[in-house]
Design a protein around this nucleic acid. Structure first.
Length: 259
DNA sequence: TAGGCCATCTGGTCCT
DNA sequence: AGGACCAGATGGCCTA
Protein backbone atom coordinates (compact mmCIF):
# COMPACT_ATOMS: atom_id res chain seq x y z
CA UNK A 1 0.00 0.00 0.00
CA UNK A 2 1.40 3.31 0.77
CA UNK A 3 4.38 4.26 -1.22
CA UNK A 4 5.37 0.82 -2.29
CA UNK A 5 2.15 -0.15 -3.91
CA UNK A 6 2.09 0.57 -7.59
CA UNK A 7 5.74 1.24 -7.77
CA UNK A 8 8.38 -0.77 -9.45
CA UNK A 9 9.75 -1.90 -6.20
CA UNK A 10 8.96 -5.48 -5.58
CA UNK A 11 9.24 -5.30 -1.87
CA UNK A 12 6.17 -6.60 -0.20
CA UNK A 13 6.74 -5.85 3.40
CA UNK A 14 3.84 -3.51 3.29
CA UNK A 15 0.84 -5.43 2.05
CA UNK A 16 -1.67 -3.35 0.20
CA UNK A 17 -4.67 -4.08 2.31
CA UNK A 18 -7.36 -1.68 3.25
CA UNK A 19 -7.44 -1.62 6.97
CA UNK A 20 -10.49 -0.55 8.78
CA UNK A 21 -10.49 0.48 12.32
CA UNK A 22 -12.27 -2.56 13.52
CA UNK A 23 -10.35 -4.81 15.80
CA UNK A 24 -11.01 -7.83 13.68
CA UNK A 25 -9.36 -6.73 10.48
CA UNK A 26 -7.46 -9.26 8.47
CA UNK A 27 -4.37 -7.15 8.65
CA UNK A 28 -4.23 -7.01 12.36
CA UNK A 29 -5.61 -10.33 13.36
CA UNK A 30 -4.25 -12.73 10.80
CA UNK A 31 -1.31 -11.46 8.89
CA UNK A 32 0.68 -10.44 11.91
CA UNK A 33 -0.96 -12.69 14.40
CA UNK A 34 2.21 -14.35 15.65
CA UNK A 35 3.96 -11.05 15.75
CA UNK A 36 1.13 -9.44 17.63
CA UNK A 37 0.97 -12.29 20.04
CA UNK A 38 4.58 -11.84 20.99
CA UNK A 39 4.30 -8.13 21.40
CA UNK A 40 1.04 -8.33 23.22
CA UNK A 41 2.52 -10.70 25.72
CA UNK A 42 5.34 -8.30 26.29
CA UNK A 43 3.12 -5.28 26.53
CA UNK A 44 0.65 -7.09 28.70
CA UNK A 45 3.36 -7.63 31.20
CA UNK A 46 4.20 -3.97 31.18
CA UNK A 47 0.59 -2.99 31.52
CA UNK A 48 0.06 -5.31 34.42
CA UNK A 49 3.04 -3.76 36.11
CA UNK A 50 1.50 -0.39 35.61
CA UNK A 51 -1.70 -1.68 37.11
CA UNK A 52 0.14 -2.88 40.16
CA UNK A 53 1.63 0.57 40.54
CA UNK A 54 -1.84 2.01 40.40
CA UNK A 55 -0.81 4.81 38.07
CA UNK A 56 -2.79 3.70 35.06
CA UNK A 57 -5.94 2.98 37.00
CA UNK A 58 -8.20 4.06 34.20
CA UNK A 59 -6.73 1.64 31.75
CA UNK A 60 -6.36 -1.12 34.26
CA UNK A 61 -10.08 -1.16 34.58
CA UNK A 62 -10.37 -2.24 30.97
CA UNK A 63 -10.74 -5.89 30.23
CA UNK A 64 -8.14 -7.68 28.21
CA UNK A 65 -10.39 -7.61 25.18
CA UNK A 66 -10.92 -3.90 25.56
CA UNK A 67 -7.21 -3.37 25.95
CA UNK A 68 -6.60 -5.32 22.79
CA UNK A 69 -9.24 -3.34 20.95
CA UNK A 70 -7.71 -0.12 22.13
CA UNK A 71 -4.28 -1.28 21.09
CA UNK A 72 -5.54 -2.26 17.67
CA UNK A 73 -7.25 1.05 17.23
CA UNK A 74 -4.11 2.90 18.12
CA UNK A 75 -2.09 0.74 15.79
CA UNK A 76 -4.54 1.34 12.98
CA UNK A 77 -4.41 5.07 13.47
CA UNK A 78 -0.66 5.04 13.47
CA UNK A 79 -0.67 2.92 10.34
CA UNK A 80 -3.01 5.33 8.62
CA UNK A 81 -0.88 8.22 9.70
CA UNK A 82 2.19 6.63 8.20
CA UNK A 83 0.30 5.83 5.02
CA UNK A 84 -0.73 9.45 4.70
CA UNK A 85 2.85 10.42 5.22
CA UNK A 86 3.94 8.05 2.47
CA UNK A 87 1.27 9.39 0.15
CA UNK A 88 2.61 12.86 0.70
CA UNK A 89 6.07 11.51 0.00
CA UNK A 90 4.82 10.02 -3.26
CA UNK A 91 3.27 13.33 -4.17
CA UNK A 92 6.60 14.94 -3.61
CA UNK A 93 8.33 12.34 -5.76
CA UNK A 94 5.91 13.04 -8.58
CA UNK A 95 6.96 16.64 -8.91
CA UNK A 96 10.66 15.96 -8.68
CA UNK A 97 12.80 16.01 -11.83
CA UNK A 98 13.58 12.41 -11.44
CA UNK A 99 12.99 9.46 -13.68
CA UNK A 100 9.74 7.76 -12.87
CA UNK A 101 8.58 4.51 -14.30
CA UNK A 102 8.32 0.82 -13.80
CA UNK A 103 11.96 0.28 -14.60
CA UNK A 104 13.30 2.90 -12.25
CA UNK A 105 13.83 2.30 -8.62
CA UNK A 106 11.92 4.66 -6.41
CA UNK A 107 13.74 7.34 -4.51
CA UNK A 108 14.15 6.55 -0.88
CA UNK A 109 12.52 8.85 1.62
CA UNK A 110 15.70 10.51 2.69
CA UNK A 111 16.79 10.92 -0.91
CA UNK A 112 13.44 12.41 -1.80
CA UNK A 113 13.71 14.97 0.94
CA UNK A 114 17.28 15.90 0.12
CA UNK A 115 16.55 16.09 -3.57
CA UNK A 116 13.49 18.23 -2.94
CA UNK A 117 15.52 20.57 -0.85
CA UNK A 118 18.21 20.95 -3.47
CA UNK A 119 15.61 21.32 -6.17
CA UNK A 120 13.96 24.16 -4.32
CA UNK A 121 17.30 25.82 -3.85
CA UNK A 122 18.04 25.39 -7.53
CA UNK A 123 14.73 26.87 -8.56
CA UNK A 124 15.20 29.76 -6.19
CA UNK A 125 18.59 30.62 -7.58
CA UNK A 126 17.30 30.23 -11.12
CA UNK A 127 14.45 32.56 -10.35
CA UNK A 128 16.87 35.12 -9.04
CA UNK A 129 18.91 34.83 -12.22
CA UNK A 130 15.79 35.27 -14.28
CA UNK A 131 14.78 38.32 -12.31
CA UNK A 132 18.18 39.83 -12.85
CA UNK A 133 18.00 39.23 -16.56
CA UNK A 134 14.54 40.66 -16.85
CA UNK A 135 15.75 43.69 -15.00
CA UNK A 136 18.67 44.00 -17.40
CA UNK A 137 16.50 43.61 -20.47
CA UNK A 138 13.87 46.10 -19.51
CA UNK A 139 16.09 48.40 -17.57
CA UNK A 140 19.17 48.70 -19.72
CA UNK A 141 19.26 47.22 -23.19
CA UNK A 142 22.54 48.84 -24.01
CA UNK A 143 24.17 47.23 -21.06
CA UNK A 144 22.81 43.89 -22.08
CA UNK A 145 24.05 44.26 -25.64
CA UNK A 146 27.43 45.25 -24.38
CA UNK A 147 27.59 42.14 -22.30
CA UNK A 148 26.02 39.93 -24.91
CA UNK A 149 29.24 38.35 -26.16
CA UNK A 150 29.62 36.83 -22.74
CA UNK A 151 26.79 34.51 -23.71
CA UNK A 152 27.50 32.94 -27.07
CA UNK A 153 23.94 31.84 -27.64
CA UNK A 154 22.72 35.36 -27.30
CA UNK A 155 25.41 36.93 -29.39
CA UNK A 156 25.29 34.57 -32.31
CA UNK A 157 21.67 33.79 -32.97
CA UNK A 158 19.41 36.37 -31.40
CA UNK A 159 17.36 38.23 -33.98
CA UNK A 160 17.22 41.95 -33.50
CA UNK A 161 13.46 41.98 -33.23
CA UNK A 162 13.30 39.30 -30.57
CA UNK A 163 14.62 39.35 -27.10
CA UNK A 164 17.53 37.04 -26.78
CA UNK A 165 16.69 33.82 -25.08
CA UNK A 166 18.07 33.45 -21.66
CA UNK A 167 19.96 30.21 -21.36
CA UNK A 168 17.64 29.19 -18.60
CA UNK A 169 14.68 29.94 -20.83
CA UNK A 170 16.21 27.74 -23.47
CA UNK A 171 16.66 25.10 -20.89
CA UNK A 172 13.06 25.36 -19.93
CA UNK A 173 12.04 25.18 -23.56
CA UNK A 174 14.08 22.10 -24.08
CA UNK A 175 12.68 20.65 -20.92
CA UNK A 176 9.12 21.24 -21.95
CA UNK A 177 9.43 20.76 -25.66
CA UNK A 178 11.40 17.58 -25.84
CA UNK A 179 11.15 14.28 -24.17
CA UNK A 180 13.72 14.11 -21.47
CA UNK A 181 16.28 11.53 -22.26
CA UNK A 182 17.51 9.46 -19.41
CA UNK A 183 21.21 9.90 -19.25
CA UNK A 184 23.49 7.92 -17.11
CA UNK A 185 24.00 9.88 -14.00
CA UNK A 186 27.58 10.68 -13.18
CA UNK A 187 28.73 7.68 -15.06
CA UNK A 188 29.40 9.60 -18.21
CA UNK A 189 31.49 12.72 -18.41
CA UNK A 190 29.45 15.85 -17.94
CA UNK A 191 27.25 16.09 -21.01
CA UNK A 192 26.93 19.84 -20.89
CA UNK A 193 30.64 20.38 -20.84
CA UNK A 194 31.93 17.78 -23.25
CA UNK A 195 29.06 17.41 -25.72
CA UNK A 196 26.26 19.86 -25.15
CA UNK A 197 22.80 18.74 -26.08
CA UNK A 198 21.47 20.39 -29.23
CA UNK A 199 18.93 22.43 -27.34
CA UNK A 200 20.92 23.13 -24.29
CA UNK A 201 22.90 26.29 -23.86
CA UNK A 202 26.63 25.91 -23.80
CA UNK A 203 28.05 25.89 -20.33
CA UNK A 204 24.65 26.28 -18.84
CA UNK A 205 25.88 24.74 -15.65
CA UNK A 206 28.49 27.34 -15.14
CA UNK A 207 26.06 30.01 -16.11
CA UNK A 208 23.63 28.94 -13.48
CA UNK A 209 26.35 28.45 -11.03
CA UNK A 210 26.20 24.71 -10.96
CA UNK A 211 29.16 22.57 -10.42
CA UNK A 212 29.74 19.00 -9.52
CA UNK A 213 30.61 18.53 -5.94
CA UNK A 214 33.06 15.74 -5.59
CA UNK A 215 33.05 16.00 -1.85
CA UNK A 216 29.52 14.79 -1.55
CA UNK A 217 30.05 11.78 -3.71
CA UNK A 218 30.75 9.31 -0.99
CA UNK A 219 28.70 10.80 1.77
CA UNK A 220 25.56 11.76 0.03
CA UNK A 221 22.76 9.24 0.43
CA UNK A 222 21.29 10.51 -2.82
CA UNK A 223 23.95 8.74 -4.72
CA UNK A 224 23.20 5.44 -3.26
CA UNK A 225 20.73 5.27 -6.10
CA UNK A 226 23.00 6.96 -8.56
CA UNK A 227 21.81 4.79 -11.41
CA UNK A 228 18.43 6.37 -11.32
CA UNK A 229 19.05 10.06 -11.78
CA UNK A 230 17.95 11.63 -14.94
CA UNK A 231 19.56 14.60 -16.56
CA UNK A 232 17.29 16.83 -18.55
CA UNK A 233 18.81 18.49 -21.58
CA UNK A 234 20.07 21.85 -20.57
CA UNK A 235 18.95 21.46 -17.02
CA UNK A 236 21.37 20.93 -14.22
CA UNK A 237 20.89 17.80 -12.26
CA UNK A 238 19.19 18.76 -9.02
CA UNK A 239 20.76 16.00 -7.06
CA UNK A 240 23.03 17.04 -4.30
CA UNK A 241 26.11 16.06 -6.25
CA UNK A 242 25.32 18.66 -8.85
CA UNK A 243 23.76 21.04 -6.41
CA UNK A 244 23.57 24.74 -7.10
CA UNK A 245 26.43 27.00 -6.24
CA UNK A 246 25.40 30.64 -6.47
CA UNK A 247 27.99 32.64 -8.28
CA UNK A 248 27.78 35.49 -5.85
CA UNK A 249 27.80 33.66 -2.58
CA UNK A 250 28.60 30.25 -1.34
CA UNK A 251 26.04 30.25 1.41
CA UNK A 252 23.48 28.51 -0.70
CA UNK A 253 26.00 25.92 -1.62
CA UNK A 254 26.84 25.37 1.97
CA UNK A 255 23.19 25.11 2.79
CA UNK A 256 22.78 22.47 0.18
CA UNK A 257 25.78 20.56 1.40
CA UNK A 258 24.95 20.53 5.05
CA UNK A 259 21.65 19.15 6.11
C1' DT B 1 25.71 -12.26 3.97
C1' DA B 2 25.81 -7.45 5.46
C1' DG B 3 23.72 -3.27 4.96
C1' DG B 4 19.98 -0.28 3.44
C1' DC B 5 15.25 0.71 3.40
C1' DC B 6 10.89 0.06 4.93
C1' DA B 7 6.39 -1.10 7.58
C1' DT B 8 4.60 -1.94 11.78
C1' DC B 9 4.05 -2.01 16.75
C1' DT B 10 4.60 0.25 20.97
C1' DG B 11 4.97 3.51 24.79
C1' DG B 12 5.73 8.22 25.91
C1' DT B 13 4.63 13.05 25.36
C1' DC B 14 2.02 16.94 23.96
C1' DC B 15 -2.13 19.15 22.46
C1' DT B 16 -7.14 20.03 22.12
C1' DA C 1 -9.87 11.46 27.51
C1' DG C 2 -8.71 10.93 22.96
C1' DG C 3 -5.88 11.79 19.18
C1' DA C 4 -1.56 13.24 16.92
C1' DC C 5 3.17 12.99 16.88
C1' DC C 6 7.54 10.96 17.81
C1' DA C 7 11.30 7.73 18.49
C1' DG C 8 12.92 3.10 19.52
C1' DA C 9 12.56 -1.76 18.54
C1' DT C 10 11.74 -5.45 15.47
C1' DG C 11 11.59 -8.10 11.47
C1' DG C 12 11.03 -8.61 6.31
C1' DC C 13 12.66 -7.69 1.65
C1' DC C 14 16.12 -6.43 -1.61
C1' DT C 15 20.67 -5.51 -3.50
C1' DA C 16 25.68 -5.46 -3.92
Amino acid sequence: MDSDAGSSCSRSSSPDIVVDDSAGSFFSNKMFHPYLQDHREASKGRMEQLDAGGKMKGRSELSKEEMQDLRLKVNSRERKRMHDLNQAMDGLREVMPYAQGPSVRKLSKISTLLLARNYILMLSSSLEEMKKLVGDVYGGNAAVQARAPAHPTMASTAPATHLPLHPLAQSLHSLVGSTPSPLQHHSSPAPTAAAPAPHSPPHSNSFLGFHPSVQGLLKDPLHVNHHSFRHFPGMPCPCSLCQPLPTTTSTLHNLALNK
